[in-house]
C-alpha cells in the first residue's frame, strides 16, 4: 500500500513538472527586455532613458558625407528613417541599439552602413535634462513598413532592462508597393539637431 502511494506521488510530481515545463515562460523570456510601449509622438519612459519618436520618413536613397565626399546609399528595399529625441533619466547613459520589427515579426537591426558618421546616430550619449536628437536608420522590405514597431534599448543584451517599443501605425502603400510619401533621396548631411558639426 505504502509503495503504491509513493508511486502515485512520484507520478503526480512528474505530471506537475511536465505541466510547469510546458506552461511556464522560457528562461530567456523571463530575463528578457521589459517592454515599455508607446506610439509616435509619445514620450516613452524606460529605466535609464526616455525617447520620443518625432517623425518617420521613407526614402529610396540616402545621401551622407563620408570623409568630405558625398556618398549615396541605395537599397533593394526601402530606407526607414526615424527621427527621435532622447534624454537620460537619472544618470548619463548610452543608447546603443535599435531595431525595426515588421508586421510579420521580421526584425531588422539598425543599419551599419552609416557607421562612418559619428554624430546623431547610434550609439548616442544622453544626459539627464538634456534632450538630444538622433536618427535611427533601417533598411527594410517595403511590405514590412506598415504597423511596424521600433525597438530601442540601451544595451544589445537588454536583460531585465527596459526596451522602448514604439508602434509606427499603418502606412499606406502606393501603386509601386513603396510606402506612401517615399522620397527619392533623403539628405543626412545636415546635423539632426541643427547645430554646426
Amino acid at each position: 500500500m505504502r509503495r503504491l502511494a509513493n508511486l502515485v506521488l512520484l507520478l503526480v510530481a512528474v505530471a506537475l513538472c511536465y505541466g510547469l515545463q510546458m506552461s511556464k515562460p522560457h528562461y530567456a523570456d523571463l530575463i528578457g527586455p521589459i517592454p515599455v510601449r508607446g506610439k509616435v509622438g509619445d514620450v516613452v519612459v524606460g529605466r535609464s532613458f526616455e525617447v520620443r519618436v518625432e517623425k518617420v520618413q521613407f526614402a529610396r536613397k540616402l545621401r551622407a558625407d563620408r570623409y568630405g565626399e558625398t556618398k549615396v546609399l541605395t537599397t533593394g528595399g526601402v530606407w526607414a528613417l526615424v527621427t527621435v529625441e532622447f534624454a537620460a533619466r537619472d544618470a548619463s547613459t548610452v543608447v546603443s541599439t535599435a531595431s525595426w520589427r515588421g508586421p510579420t515579426r521580421l526584425t531588422y537591426d539598425h543599419t551599419e552602413r552609416l557607421s562612418f558618421i559619428n554624430n546623431g546616430f547610434l550609439p548616442v550619449t544622453v544626459d539627464p535634462g538634456l534632450q538630444k536628437k538622433a536618427r535611427l536608420v533601417f533598411e527594410v522590405r517595403p511590405e514590412e513598413v506598415g504597423n511596424a514597431t521600433v525597438l530601442i534599448s540601451s544595451k544589445l543584451l537588454a536583460a531585465l532592462d527596459s526596451q522602448a517599443e514604439i508602434s509606427i501605425g499603418p502606412v499606406a502603400a502606393s501603386s509601386d508597393g513603396m510606402p506612401a510619401g517615399t522620397v527619392d533621396t533623403l539628405d543626412l548631411t545636415q546635423p539632426v539637431d541643427g547645430l554646426p558639426k
Binding site: R89, D90, A91, S92, T125, D127, P128, G129
Partner: peptide
C-alpha cells in the same frame, strides 16, 4: 568623475 544635483541625477563628462 561625476556631477550630482540635488535630486541625485548624475552627469558624466562630455565630449
Amino acid at each position: 568623475v561625476m556631477l550630482i544635483d540635488a535630486e541625485g541625477r548624475r552627469w558624466l563628462p562630455t565630449s
